[in-house]
């Protein structure tokens, strides 16, 4: 297995009054090419910080963050990022939002149009291509953000609680849609969530983190076949893995005495 993303002994501290605050303490994790990994853990354990370092939006205080074996020096179109707050440009239509990255890539107008059209179709927003974000529901906004990321065809998708603000039904629909596209194009996905069900349903591995200081608590393998179906979601095996992850998230015991 080849590593797509590697975190090596990553430490991240934020300067605070008095002493520095350690957000991540010695995190090492390899994510294989085309793997779907989810990350769960209590709020404040450094999930977003970890993802932002892979995205190139933050730098590790010490340690290495590698993508394809080379250190991350900044954001790049090879890594698409999807934020919980959608982060759509509200003054642009769905189509213009999706074309934003394509424009920056210097694509010609007709090629841009074609790629955007395709991405919009993939997330089922064709009828809303010329709508402004303010007229869309939360689920549609996030689908637009996903299309915007897909359009530039990144090899890696970094998703930070993308479905966290959506209602349960929309969430399940988007999970299936995401797995659908992933099974076709097999990008590498790092997906943060606070929903244990979601973490198990999507991933081949669930990374469970612990807080204060932020670190990896456990990694749980999800030995369930793809495509994931409702049947799998309701199977006893799924339930067993879910319970295991649940347990390691909510009963982490006390932090180790030595940092």
């Amino acid at each position: 297995m080849t590593e797509k993303i590697s975190f090596r002994d990553v430490v991240k501290t934020f300067p605070m009054k008095g002493t520095d605050f350690t957000a991540l303490n010695g995190v090492s994790l390899d994510i294989a090419d085309r793997e779907f990994v989810t990350v769960v853990g209590p709020s404040g354990c450094g999930k977003s910080t970890l993802l932002n370092m892979a995205a190139g939006l933050a730098e590790p205080t010490s340690g290495d963050v590698l993508v394809d074996g080379s250190p991350v020096t900044g954001p790049g179109p090879d890594r698409g990022v999807i934020f919980q707050q959608y982060a759509l440009f509200p003054w642009l239509t769905v189509r213009q939002n999706v074309e934003f990255g394509l424009r920056l890539a210097g694509l010609a107008a007709d090629e841009r149009r074609k790629r955007a059209e395709h991405a919009i179709e993939l997330v089922d927003l064709t009828d809303f291509a010329d709508a402004l974000p303010k007229t869309l529901s939360g689920g549609m906004k996030q689908r637009c953000a996903i299309a915007r990321a897909y359009a530039v065809n990144p090899q890696v998708l970094l998703m930070d609680e993308p479905f966290g603000a959506l209602d349960a039904l929309t969430r399940v629909q988007l999970q299936d849609q995401l797995l659908d596209t992933w099974s076709q194009d097999k990008r590498t996905v790092m997906f943060i969530t606070h929903d244990v069900d979601e973490a198990v349903y999507l991933a081949s591995r669930v990374v469970v983190m612990a807080a204060r200081p932020g670190r990896i608590h456990r990694i749980v393998d999800v030995d369930l076949p793809y495509p994931r179906t409702e049947e799998i979601r309701l199977s006893p095996e799924f339930g067993r893995i879910r319970n295991e992850v649940w347990h390691s998230v909510y009963h982490q015991g006390t932090a180790p005495a030595a940092a």
């Binding site: 190139g56 954001p75 982060a87």
Partner: peptide, 12 residues
């Protein structure tokens, strides 16, 4: 909004 700036940055 910082996230808008970040969204633009990650798109290059």
């Amino acid at each position: 909004d910082r996230t808008l700036i970040n969204a633009a940055r990650v798109l290059g």
